[in-house]
């Protein structure tokens, strides 16, 4: 995820836990990356798709024609 960055504060304890998690499990380069991943997972996974209203209507038309909707 890109774009403008903002600062957030979390407890030292949670930060240390996150650091330990990354050291043990891998997969994330930084606590920031882990926090961003968890927020995306928890509250808003949508996005990343570029579907125009016209295209969405065409998709729905096909889905209806095939009996999926």
């Amino acid at each position: 995820m890109s774009g403008e960055k903002v600062k957030i504060e979390i407890s030292r304890e949670a930060y240390e836990q996150a650091k330990r998690f990354i050291e043990e499990q891998g997969g994330f380069k930084s606590v920031e990356e882990l926090v961003e991943f968890l927020i995306t997972e928890a509250v808003g996974a949508e996005g990343g798709e570029e579907i125009s209203p016209e295209e969405e209507e065409k998709i729905k038309e096909r889905l209806r024609r095939l009996g999926y909707m």
Binding site: E49, I51, I59, L63
Partner: peptide, 16 residues
């Protein structure tokens, strides 16, 4: 083809 859906289509379908 009649049974083939692509990711854009399933995403719309699941949301609907």
């Amino acid at each position: 083809e009649r049974y083939t859906l692509w990711p854009k289509e399933t995403r719309v379908l699941f949301r609907e």
